[in-house]
Simulated assay, not measured.
Amino acid sequence: MKRLPLIVLSCLTILAACQQTQMPDTGRYTYSDMPLPNAKPALMISENWKKYNTPPQIIYKIDGHRFITLESYDNCSGETWYNDTKSGVRTRVGHTSPNGFLGKLIIDDQTGMNVAVPTVTTGSCGDRGCRNYLAYSTDGGKSFNWLQYDSDHISFDSVKSSKDYSFYVTSDSLYVTKKWGNFGNDLIDRYPLRLGYVYGKNAKLPEGVSIQFGSTLPKGLRTPSGQDHYICDASILPTNGD
């Protein structure tokens, strides 16, 4: 498969650098502050969301002490938390509907520093389409930044499109792969990860560090638990629901 000319890739690199921002928990609605001419900015955290009395569910298990939970949810849509019982880290990431993300997630970083939590828009995208984001951490889950992973493809059905994406986290990189065409070809982009690396509008990267388009995925990557996708039991419902 032919890849895009160098001048086009250079333009995509510049565009990708503008499509990520940190979304701190301010106690109010927290939106991306980057310009999104074709989509409403993504709502990530709000203290105004209704609190549900559903028990926490582990939707993704990395190993015996690292896992992602869904809490205060209805119909498997609620608050996502990253937990590390060994280091004592517990961080609220944002809002997730795990059953809506149909792609693959592999976290194979034995250092425990790098984490990724992909999300997907499950509501109507309208005639302007949706943009979808992934939260990533380079400090063992203490803090997260946000990255738009479908920057070259505005989806009109994010749930359906999500099955084309796979995310692989290693000790030094995040690999984002997307199925391309009907011939089994994947587009693979590599985001180098280190403590303090931040992509996007407020980028904090050493000179020479950038997204590598057309990368190669390392072989044999596997989450220690063996899990490669989210799971959530939709039969568990709150008793204080609407």
Score class of each variant (00 low, 15 high):
P35I: 10
S87H: 05
R92C: 06
S155F: 01
L237A: 10
M113Y: 07
M23Y: 02
P35H: 04
I62T: 13
Q19F: 13
A17K: 13
V93P: 07
C18W: 09
V117F: 07
Q20L: 13
R3L: 13
G141Y: 09
M34I: 05
Y199A: 04
F213T: 11
R3G: 13
N48M: 14
M23L: 12
W49N: 14
R3S: 12
Y29V: 15
N53R: 04
N202D: 15
G129K: 02
T85N: 04
L36T: 11
S124F: 03
G78Q: 04
T96C: 13
S173Q: 03
K51A: 11
P224K: 05
D157L: 03
D186C: 08
D157Y: 02
I107E: 03
K160C: 04
A17T: 11
I62S: 08
S124M: 04
L195P: 03
E47G: 02
V8Y: 14
F167V: 06
K142M: 09
S151C: 11
P37R: 07
Y191P: 00
W81A: 02
N53E: 06
D186E: 15
P35E: 02
L205Q: 05
R222Y: 12
D189K: 00
N83F: 05
L12H: 14
G94Q: 08
I14G: 01
T111M: 06
N99K: 06
D228Q: 14
T13V: 01
F213C: 11
H229F: 04
D233N: 12
D108C: 12
A135M: 08
A16F: 15
I45R: 07
G181W: 14
K178F: 09
R222G: 10
T216H: 14
Q57V: 12
D63R: 07
W146Y: 12
R66C: 09
K201T: 15
S32Q: 05
S155E: 03
R190F: 05
D150G: 04
M113H: 08
N48T: 14
T170H: 02
N48Q: 11
C130R: 03
G126M: 03
G241N: 10
S225Y: 14
P56Q: 01
I45S: 14
T111G: 01
N114G: 05
M44E: 02
R92E: 05
